[in-house]
Design a protein around this nucleic acid. Structure first.
Length: 283
DNA sequence: TCCCAGGCTCTCT
DNA sequence: AGAGAGCATGGG
């Protein structure tokens, strides 16, 4: 048995996988189905997806959260980081809860963790997300993976930028992604050629990172911020879509409370989930 | 049916 | 600099 270096959760290798016990602020449903990632689905009470070219099954048990079939090595190299397990979400929620409205939102959405997805997948997914709805985004991404991802035996990986860079807009017609196809191709070409360097986005100044990403056609401020938040671990980013705009105006007079600025991206996802689930509207 | 969707680009003032 | 139309497609 080993334990988290920072947090007080415990990891054990059990007969059918890796068991995470004592973890706080980690609700599978709201984390995996809150619109930050698009390949998760529920099957027989288990959540499953393909991420980093691996099929994962994860579900809650009486003794904790189980990642079925995972090895300790896979956990440490992939899932621990993917699920953001070494971040102290209790501290974040505790801090922002000094603000009444943020406390209400945290009570509702404070068990969401920000997934750290593959940067290219996040970029491509959020290009597809523009002026689109979540069920349709999922469908397009599924067709994209099936058509051009690698067959890993139990599904398809997310296609590489190199693979997509060799295609044409016409090749993507079967995705029915509409006007976004040309943006996907442009992103793939710029990433595959190195004109846009995704690796350095995790540490260069945010303004530079935004400028790098917006070199891609079809990538504006919002998609760039989503890529940085969900694909590069930049939790200071605060993507503003129609839901967030509406929620900010209605709940906060347009400005994020100072206590939340440090964790803007995480709070953004809380607000997004809260707004959507409560169908927050102007009327 | 019609409105809208985790926006962006392009054009016209 | 700012506003507005157009964009592809289909879910609700």
């Amino acid at each position: 048995m080993t334990s988290g270096d920072i947090m007080n959760y415990k990891i054990s290798e059990v007969s059918n996988g890796i068991l995470i016990s004592g973890i706080t602020r980690f609700d599978l449903e709201s984390t995996l189905d809150c619109g930050q990632a698009f390949r998760w689905e529920q099957q027989n009470g288990k959540w499953t997806a393909i991420a980093f070219a691996k099929r994962i099954y994860i579900y809650s048990t009486e003794s904790g959260i189980l990642i079925e079939g995972a090895t300790l090595d896979e956990f440490n190299t992939i899932w621990r980081n993917y699920f953001d397990l070494d971040r102290d979400y209790d501290e974040i929620v505790s801090n922002i809860s000094s603000h009444d409205k943020l406390k209400e939102i945290s009570d509702f959405a404070g068990n969401i963790r920000i997934l750290k997805q593959d940067a290219w997948e996040a970029l491509c997914s959020f290009i597809i997300s523009q002026n689109n709805n979540i069920p349709r985004i999922k469908g397009i991404i599924e067709r994209l993976c099936k058509a051009y991802g690698e067959d890993i035996g139990c599904g398809y990986s997310f296609p590489s930028s190199e693979t997509l860079a060799s295609l044409t807009v016409d090749d993507l017609a079967e995705l029915r992604s509409g006007f976004r196809a040309k943006y996907i191709i442009d992103a793939a070409q710029k990433v595959a050629s190195g004109e846009v360097n995704l690796e350095k986005l995790s540490y260069i100044p945010i303004e530079d990172a935004i400028n790098e990403l917006t070199k891609i056609k079809g990538v504006g401020i919002k998609v760039a911020n989503c890529t940085l938040l969900f694909g590069c671990g930049r939790i200071e980013c605060f993507p503003v879509d129609v839901w967030i705009k509406r929620a900010m105006d209605t709940l906060f007079d347009g400005e994020l409370p100072e206590v939340a600025v440090k964790y803007a991206g995480i709070v953004q996802q809380y607000i997004f989930h809260y707004a959507r689930m409560t169908k927050l509207r102007f009327d």
